[in-house]
Design a protein around this nucleic acid. Sequence first.
DNA 1: AGTACATTCAATAATTCTCTTGAATGATCC
DNA 2: GGATCATTCAAGAGAATTATTGAATGTACT
Lengths: 220, 220
Amino acid sequence: MSSDNPKRKLFSHFAALARVLGNEHRLELLELLAQGAQPVEVLTARTGISFANVSQHLQQLRKAGLVTGGRRGKNIVYRLQDGPVVEAVSALRALAEHNMAEVRDVVARYFDEIDSLEPVGAGELLSRLESDSVTLLDVRPADEFRSGHIPQARNITLAALEGRISELPEGREIIAYCRGPYCVLSFQAVEALRARGFAVRRFKEGFPEWKAAGYPVETA
Amino acid sequence: MSSDNPKRKLFSHFAALARVLGNEHRLELLELLAQGAQPVEVLTARTGISFANVSQHLQQLRKAGLVTGGRRGKNIVYRLQDGPVVEAVSALRALAEHNMAEVRDVVARYFDEIDSLEPVGAGELLSRLESDSVTLLDVRPADEFRSGHIPQARNITLAALEGRISELPEGREIIAYCRGPYCVLSFQAVEALRARGFAVRRFKEGFPEWKAAGYPVETA
DNA sequence: AGTACATTCAATAATTCTCTTGAATGATCC
DNA sequence: GGATCATTCAAGAGAATTATTGAATGTACT
């Protein structure tokens, strides 16, 4: 009834946007791009999705205005478009965690089991950094670290962690972070470091959420 | 790579949830349910979608944990499940408005044209209500008003507005609101009242957003 | 108990989405 | 200028999604 033509049109656009978010590969691509711009090649390698398929997904993301692609040398580099992309995905995640029984199950069974300690929120992390009372560990790949990270963070890839463990000061709490709240890297880092007797907690979110919330970011 | 089994599983759930949001009819049903619980019958009438189809969409929403359905007398009444449903849809809308060119077009062409005045935000509305310096008009159907509205609001349906226009005090600003930011009812009310010389503005959002933000709500 | 009513279920056709394959484009490098 | 490389395009098979129809369920009313 009431033949709301323009509202209907808007809702259909909103739905189309939700469908763009409604694919696990595209969500993963968005997560990667939220760490920093990347050429298609790297996205292919890092996700394990086939080349042409990544390209097609990127195209859908671009058509929806979520990413932009530009040529840099031989590669076409995609980056997140300005706008509340991270926020929208976070809202989706929050809804899923709250309302979907299966999601609560996976989180409880898998993640809470590895790390039962309460993770550190952004506000607390910031004040701990300001008082210099904590060592912050970024376990993402080096290029993602380079294109943006939380100030004072040290970048030690998970693969390199075993070998460089002596670089970490003892007797000081370590906080580890990663791409997002369920990035497995930081969970594994926490597990590995705890086994060596370090006091480690995870940052509750990841770099993109930190940045989207307006906290300071360092590039180098 | 990195075979993130549990993260992949979560992402696939997030994507599934996004797909549930990725249908205009379901978005519309959610908007209606955000006004208050309704039996399938009313949802059918109010959306114009066929009966069986509404039922199937509701089932998908229920399976995703976004709504619950319970029998009340002869009817089965659906209501929004607890959780950040309104917030997620709002985030989706914000993203669409910011990043999708087509959405910006529709908004500019259609909505901004009818009402070029800056709408009133929630904070301002609250303080205007507290100082009793404004008449608040709820143009939704009576049953939606009854199951929850902004305090001090008067309910005059759009259809009844012409006939009851004398009830509105003159020389006092009117603020109209509705189901959500793009609910056409409030735009039409604004248009009709302005034609009669009233000073009218719209509330920027709708009742569900007001409620979800934690502002006071009246039921009667 | 039986009828009426609101809703769901089941089956189907039409449409859309996804991935794969192989060819096409377009920039770089020698 | 030709070879090479990264990416996109185009086509097609397979799967999922959607709306419609008509039957099935289960509660309420008399």
